[in-house]
Design a protein around this nucleic acid. Structure first.
Lengths: 113, 113
DNA sequence: TTAATTCATTTCGCACCCGTATTATTACAT
DNA sequence: ATGTAATAATACGGGTGCGAAATGAATTAA
């Protein structure tokens, strides 16, 4: 994979964060970002409990993040038919697009100079 | 500079965010991160007004962020002696170390595979 | 069938962040 | 000197996120 110098790494991070902050469309919290990217980048199925354990946060954090991001249509809930206590977190078209665009943004900033 | 594929970019971003979330030491908001990195990566002097304009937020956001990050000793205030209405945001040793470590973290994750 | 377990959700209290509007201080123009 | 402008800080109200604890729903064990 790419080899980033310390300085380059910081400038990349800075520019991505600046894009996020100044654009200001939605402002997801750091935890929400972690949830979103975990669901889209790691193989499922993802449950509330599983995500809470992986991110080292309490379950209500996941529940509330699903409320918020569900409203933005970035993720969706689905009851597990095999064990209806579980909630499976599903990807959405809008969410996939959003994550994809984020990848573009990052790699574009990484290629700036 | 490095050339990142879209997928690599997303995985890099994901791993850095995961480190930030699960580590959970201090949790700065996205805006606070933007302020911190702007001060350490862009040439000064930085003022409350200037940062507010650059980040497209209101001035109280900067003031409060300085309160919070000042308490963590990541940044310091200094009255501008030439115009005592201004506050110049100063770097600190602890802050420089913090940012430096962040660069290590990012570049390390970028080199993982 | 009943009790215990295991999920996700809701409730509660606390803390933080935000923007608007106001205040206090300093500089500048007249 | 006086008034105006500019700067940062503060007060206030609303919104949201957090963890702990309580609740509800579904499964499993006895």
């Amino acid at each position: 994979m790419a080899n980033l110098s310390n300085r380059e790494a910081l400038e990349l991070w800075h520019s991505v964060i600046m894009n996020q902050v100044t654009g200001g469309a939605n402002d997801l919290s750091m935890r929400q970002f972690a949830i979103l990217f975990t669901v889209y980048l790691e193989p499922g199925p993802h449950t509330v409990r599983g995500l809470a354990a992986k991110l080292n946060v309490t379950k209500p954090v996941i529940t509330r993040a699903l409320d918020a991001m569900g409203q933005l249509d970035l993720l969706a809930r689905k009851r597990d038919p095999r064990d209806r206590r579980n909630v499976l977190i599903q990807r959405t078209v809008a969410g996939a697009l959003y994550v994809e665009n984020y990848g573009d943004l990052i790699s574009k900033n990484a290629g700036l100079n």
